[in-house]
């Protein structure tokens, strides 16, 4: 029973919306490239899905365009540029690094930096310097107290 379940898990790949075999390219290498590209492109209608994952009609049209261009021998960069020219940065699921997205990309570094500063601050406080030595007046007073019966 368990072995069967495991086999089922291994056999079941990720499920793409692209279930229609008629949409796929006959060349598996090209189809692979088209899928990789499609996973980088945002469906403009559903917005949180890639065009490979979406069932929207526009996503299907864009999948077809990607496959046509891959089959026509255009490079990955050319296909991405084609869609970027029409839909702008929004179509890219991986946003480009520019002035507008600098803060977005810098957030992990900033968060890590802030955490490091916090840890450093806490450590420094724990290792606070020893209190200053007693002044001669204090030492004399201490000695006097020691002498008291």
């Amino acid at each position: 029973m368990r072995r069967w379940l495991f086999a089922l898990l291994v056999a079941s790949g990720p499920a793409w919306a692209l279930s229609d075999p008629a949409e796929q390219l006959p060349d598996p290498a090209q189809e692979q490239r088209a899928r990789a590209l499609g996973r980088e492109l945002r469906c403009l209608v559903c917005q949180n899905q890639s065009i490979e994952d979406s069932d929207a009609e526009l996503a299907r049209d864009l999948r077809r365009i990607v496959r046509e261009q891959v089959a026509a021998g255009r490079s990955d960069g050319q296909v991405m540029a084609f869609l970027h020219d029409r839909y702008g940065d929004f179509v890219l699921l991986r946003p480009p690094v520019n002035a507008g997205t600098a803060l977005l990309w810098a957030t992990p570094v900033l968060a890590l930096g802030a955490g490091a500063l916090l840890v450093l601050g806490l450590r420094r406080r724990r290792a606070a310097p020893a209190p200053a030595a007693l002044t001669p007046a204090e030492q004399a007073r201490l000695a006097e107290l020691d002498r008291m019966p």
Binding site: L58, R86, G88
Partner: peptide, 12 residues
């Protein structure tokens, strides 16, 4: 076919 619309960046 909706192809020219894609050239315009139409999404609906």
């Amino acid at each position: 076919p909706g192809r020219v619309a894609i050239d315009w960046g139409v999404y609906g």
